[in-house]
């Protein structure tokens, strides 16, 4: 009896979460709509703007949250990874004329950087939170300055291939940039891949077990340090790619590393640290809030970003979908 009761509680909790997610995603645009009575067209535009910006944030936040869940490192260099990945992608695209090559080169370059950061730098101070924070912030400064020296301070964007340029037409009178729709699709594909790896593969199960209890996974024969490196590499790879993707509609410039990091942090804090579903939800929420706030009350855009975060933290200190540690 005891067990079935527990199971019921678990299902109820899961249902309540789903309700929470849907409510949040529907409520934000609806509130914005009723407050402002915008036209349906600009309402749709804002939703797509929010979701496509959220898509970029998801790329960044999914790697961040995985690295945190497994290694317990808040990798504050993730914004730096984004910036430098974007620059490498721009240069590669300019040299080769291939956007896809730029995308992959941005990811690979940051993957190499990530392996260096994890194996050479972070491994020496494993488990020491303050040194890890200082090291990853320091790394962001180094990456930022190197990028400034190599790519200069002017805003840069990645040249898009012809088939991703221009608007896409929906219905009679609704036009929307093709590229943003493409980014949204890419994020959905990435989310599907990540969920598949997480739920259906052995490495996904090992990562989840490692998030639960690193020590015991290792004591049962898993080389957890190798898993850490793979996770860090993968997280860095998507962070580098996200820079290239973001550079298609958000210009890259010095300082963007910290700005995008801030957004990614809000995403994972709202969604719940270490939770993949949390990253999806947090990215959508933050993207939508940012888009509507910038359209309606641009002078308050930081307030509208942090106020919801503060409220959510007051109600659910572990984030919307986070587990109690």
């Amino acid at each position: 009896m005891e067990h079935s009761a527990e199971r019921v509680v678990d299902t109820v909790k899961a249902d309540r979460r789903r309700v929470l997610i849907i409510t949040a995603l529907v409520a934000i645009p609806l509130i914005a709509w009723t407050l402002t009575q915008m036209s349906l067209l600009s309402f749709g535009t804002q939703i797509l703007n929010g979701l496509s910006f959220g898509a970029v944030l998801f790329f960044l936040a999914s790697g961040f949250t995985m690295i945190f869940g497994l290694l317990r490192i808040a990798n504050l260099a993730h914004g730096g990874f984004y910036l430098m990945g974007g620059y490498v992608g721009i240069t590669t695209t300019l040299v080769t004329g291939q956007f896809w090559l730029g995308l992959i080169a941005g990811g690979l370059a940051i993957m190499v950087l990530g392996v260096f950061a994890e194996r050479v730098l972070l491994r020496r101070i494993r488990g020491l939170v303050k040194p890890e924070v200082l090291l990853t912030i320091g790394l962001t400064f180094v990456i930022g300055d190197l990028s400034l020296a190599m790519w200069g301070g002017d805003p840069r964007t990645v040249p898009l291939p012809g088939y991703l340029k221009g608007p896409i037409q929906i219905g009679d009178s609704f036009f929307y940039p093709k590229y943003r729709v493409f980014v949204l699709g890419l994020a959905i594909v990435l989310a599907a891949i990540l969920f598949y790896i997480d739920r259906r593969t052995k490495i996904g199960a090992i990562v989840r077990a490692g998030v639960d209890d690193r020590e015991t996974v290792a004591a049962l024969g898993i080389n957890i340090n190798a898993v850490f490196t793979i996770a860090f590499m993968f997280g860095a790879f998507i962070a580098g790619m996200s820079g290239v993707i973001g550079a298609g509609f958000l210009a890259l410039l010095p300082g963007q590393d910290f700005e995008i990091l801030l957004f990614a942090l809000v995403v994972v804090i709202i969604g719940g640290l270490g939770s993949l579903e949390g990253a999806v939800l947090g990215a959508a929420v933050v993207g939508l809030i940012d888009s509507f706030a910038k359209a309606l009350v641009p002078e308050l855009s930081f307030f509208t970003l942090f106020a919801p975060m503060a409220i959510i933290l007051m109600i659910r200190p572990n984030g919307l979908l986070g587990k109690a540690p």
Partner: peptide, 29 residues
């Protein structure tokens, strides 16, 4: 992990099962 791979199995104090994995996943992982 190297010690475990040499054939020493470990049942930790406090059980320490992987809480967010299913029973089958705990065994297979």
């Amino acid at each position: 992990y190297e010690i475990a791979r040499r054939g020493i199995g470990y049942v930790p104090q406090g059980r320490r099962v992987f809480g967010s994995l299913t029973v089958v996943e705990n065994l297979e992982v």
